[in-house]
């Protein structure tokens, strides 16, 4: 019986692949793809009285983005996500480079980046609160050192949100850059040195161009979650200056306007798709050329 079944599959290689993939793909289709379709459906429905949806289709929820209030939220979200990405690149690149060039310490240094990558985001945001609040470590130290007498307002500022996001997403930038720098051959650098290039020149002419794929991937991997984040702005910004994430969350909880929340989420998803498709196109084009 078993042998007969195996023989049936052996004669149909596509069927065996399909049979292995089917359970997982069905799961992802049912609980990832279908829900996004449902969300898309919600986004064009009329808002119901008590938080549900009413019959009738409309595009008004998308139109609301043009209101100044929401344009501001949209603009702030994109700006903060960009600033976070830039800061992560600036801080993450030297780390990735040092790990890639390290010999004996490489595994440990790498693990020290992987660890925060997987450590609870929530705990790490709380650690930031613990540092930045009025009675937090930073203010306590400043007062102890006599630099200030009254606590400085650090928490619940845009700065705190940005620091929190950079702190939260930095490992996402380091790992892909490291992955591309790791392939960098010592002999390439030596060749550049022999040819008379000094440190900065070698970096600009050899290292940076070669690490570019990792940089692009890292920026994408940082930008997307930064764009979609709402925990840092909620916890560290005190929900005063909201991002799209907060807006969406609010529509699905307190405001109970699911259609509008869905429209906002779908707009975000569209941004993500544009970024990912653009990235894949670029990468595929490079693979074809290279």
């Amino acid at each position: 019986m078993r042998r007969r079944l195996l023989r049936w599959f052996a004669r149909r290689p596509a069927a065996s692949g399909g049979a292995l993939a089917a359970p997982g793909l069905l799961w992802v289709a049912a609980f990832f793809l279908a829900p996004i379709a449902v969300m898309l459906g919600y986004s064009v429905r009329e808002r119901g009285l008590y938080g549900g949806v009413a019959p009738g289709l409309t595009l008004e929820h998308y139109g609301r983005f043009l209101e100044p209030l929401y344009l501001e939220v949209l603009g702030r979200t994109v700006l903060w996500a960009l600033v976070t990405t830039a800061a992560c690149l600036l801080l993450g690149y030297p780390v990735a480079y040092v790990i890639a060039r390290a010999k004996r310490w490489r595994q440990i240094l790498l693990f020290l980046v992987i660890l925060p990558f997987w450590t609870s985001f929530l705990v790490r945001m709380f650690a930031m609160i613990f540092l930045l609040r009025d009675t937090g470590l930073v203010n306590t130290l400043l007062q102890r050192l006599g630099l200030t007498t009254d606590p400085i307002q650090l928490l619940y500022t845009p700065g705190a949100v940005l620091i929190g996001m950079v702190y939260g997403f930095l490992p996402l930038m380091v790992l892909p850059i490291y992955a591309s720098l790791e392939k960098l051959d010592d002999s390439l650098l030596e060749a550049a040195e022999v040819l008379g290039a000094n440190g900065p020149t070698r970096f600009a002419r050899v290292v940076w161009p070669l690490s570019l794929p990792g940089v692009v991937a890292g920026c994408l991997l940082t930008f997307i979650p930064a764009l979609g984040s709402f925990v840092p702005s909620d916890l560290l910004g005190g929900a005063k200056q909201v991002m799209i994430g907060n807006l969406i969350q609010n529509q699905f909880t307190a405001a109970r306007n699911w259609p509008f929340g869905s429209a906002a989420a779908f707009a975000m998803m569209a941004l993500v798709l544009v970024a990912v498709v653009g990235y894949l196109r670029r990468r595929d084009a490079r693979e074809v050329v290279g």
Binding site: A14, F252, G261
Partner: peptide
């Protein structure tokens, strides 16, 4: 294995990785 729609299936998995959590949450 090879099977029809493999590339699309792989892209779907990667999409699930990069999709912001909030979208996965509210759509579910």
């Amino acid at each position: 294995h090879r099977f029809p729609g493999k590339r699309a299936a792989e892209s779907l998995l990667y999409l699930a990785i990069v999709t912001p959590e909030i979208i996965m949450g509210i759509s579910l």
